[in-house]
Design a protein around this nucleic acid. Sequence first.
RNA 1: GGGCGCUUAGCUCAGUUGGUUAGAGCGUCUGGUUUACACCCAGAAGGUCGCAGGUUCGACUCCUGCAGCGCCCACCA
Length: 723
Amino acid sequence: PASRTALSDEEVTMKPQSGVIYHMRYELVDAPGTFLEIATTRPETIMGDTGVAVHPEDERYQHLIGKKIWRPFPREAIPIVADTAVDREFGTGVLKVTPAHDVTDWEIGERTGLPAIDVMNPDGTINEKGGEFAGMDRFEARKAAAKKLEELGLLVERKPYENNVGFSERANVPIEPRLSEQWFLKYPKIDEAIRAVENGHIKIYPERWTKTYLHWLKNIKDWCLSRQLWWGHRIPVWYRKGADRANPENYHVSVAGPSDPENWEQEEDVLDTWASSWLWPLATLGWPDASAMKARGFESFFPSSVLVTGFDILFFWVARMIISSLEFAGPEKETLSEEEIAQRVPFRDVYITGLIRDIKGRKMSKSLGNFPDALELLDKYGADGVRFGLVSIAPQGQDIRFDEERLEPARNFCNKLWNVARFRQMQGDTQDNSSRGILLERIDSARFDLDDHAILGSLASTLEAYEKDMVRYEVSSATSHIYSFFWSDFCDWYIEVSKTKLKDESLRANCLAIQDFILRELLLLLHPFMPFITEELFSLMGYATEGDFAQNHATMNPNGLRERFSLDGQAVSQVALIREFVTKVRALKAEYKLAAKRDVSLSFTADSEHLGLIESNRDKLLSLVGAVELVHIDSAPDGMPGAISALATAFIDLSQSIDVEAERARLSKEEAKLQKAVKAGRSKLSNEKFLNSAPPKIVEGARAQLAESEAKLDEVLRLLKSL
RNA sequence: GGGCGCUUAGCUCAGUUGGUUAGAGCGUCUGGUUUACACCCAGAAGGUCGCAGGUUCGACUCCUGCAGCGCCCACCA
């Protein structure tokens, strides 16, 4: 009653309401003094009751079917009918039937021939049919009617009761079912809309929404299009002046209108707003005007590749756009072939995003005020920080609880990006960065060391992972690949090892060229997520020539990259060995409170295979670990604390005496871990079935794993013994 | 009533066809004026992957049941 308009099923939200259920009794006409008990939540509609219904197979009441019963006010004999819609378990199993004010009751009335008496005005007050209650609001009348029942001695009891009441989504008031004349649309192309998704002409991401979509379509009812609002597209229906509107011969339906408009009057009601929106894919491309369609590129842009939206409008909008396009994006046809469906769908993919909720998991809403101030967020985290942050915390299709603190890593990322560019600029030696081709020319792969191979190799893998994620709309996964490549591989490792290489004139230019190249690819990868900073840096770093922008460029093909420099496929794992070695040595230093000392002396044992790897990276290792010497020795010294890694065992020459107990504790902990790994590995590898059934790659991996664990365990045991 | 999702480290969450030692950020603890960055660096601690079964050589991952939380659909008045 608040909006005084009709609406569609989709606009109804069911809400649990605590109210009262009234048990009352109606007297049988044939048997005065005998009553039938009836439960209702809506006594104010008693005046509109035109019958009482029971289940046809309900033994309690079967003998009463066809008899009459007294409606208390206005007092009138009404029939007892049978209908399977009645739930025998509910209440007393007897239902009062008010066809004018309840959908189920209307249907029962239709089936059993009960008339409808509308007892309400459009504003929800009781009308003159409601007798003594006329003029009262429906809720006021409810109490008054209950009181009246009580006075008549017909009220058995009042019970507190919670039931689901349909609310208008827009006006947020209980909907009043009412008889009225409205225009409905019998949806066309429902079968085609089902096939479009079932047969993959349209793919929905995440896939589970497919089920929801299909369920809706398979249970679809006619669409109530009329709205009694002043805002909207007027319904394109004309009635012959002065003629009977109920007679279809007196209608004219068309967009253009009748040729003799003076004899017609147009419908006053307007269309449901979604009946305009459902034409969006077509109307935006000039439809239905052929020349406008041509001008707007209908041929090229229809269907579009992806529609990104929220699940809350999957029915309202998405499904209906599909239906309208199947109907209108081509010549009029009763049914469509698979090929025609493929041509007429409005988009190929539908990406359903999650909802951003507040920290307590509630939907953000104006009434709750539980949403952040966007301008404040931009101020605190930057436009790029907010964008990159939101994208990175939103896994595919999953709702997210928004906590503004979750944007911090993204803001820090932006800062880091800015700083690494600054580091590069502080190196000077600015050379020609103006195109990828020129950059590639500056890089001489003959001078590559292990780290150069590794960083370019992991750039190639990152490019691959990014591509793979993006085509599947795994956008946040794509950002996390960039994040870890940039932060962990590039900044924490490559830039750090660069600091040693940059001192070497024979390596310096090449190293800088590689940095320039990687930074350029990174900016391109990041550009969709952080357009401002990347565009700025693209220009500052000299990647853009006058009038050119990052957005005009694509990243390099990963295989092209590998081939161009004949990248060493082993480099990434070898650098991983070196990184483990460095971490273990640093940890050992920290253990002995030497973390800040940069002049320790190290010795190490290693097998011949790994010896070369250490020797050729000696300078970098010294710098990364904070040592002045790194001497290879043949056998482990006694009583010296050692850092065990797959690459080597390193020993710190301590001038101080070591804490034997602490060292024993540390090594024992390590030992326990390794014992467990060794035990697991051995039992797995001695299992025939595992060896026979597992893929060779897995078995191979398990062997290597075990070998490494065993080697480390030997080291640990030896060190323990030597203490 | 039907359907869907979630339950993994103190917190917020990743974990892509079952496979090597389950990850990240934040938080915590220790240390830090090294050629950018303290919005930083180095190191560490922290998990019976909700519970109970099952399938399998192997389960966070697959199946069944249960529990808790959330959502969607539905004509119990």
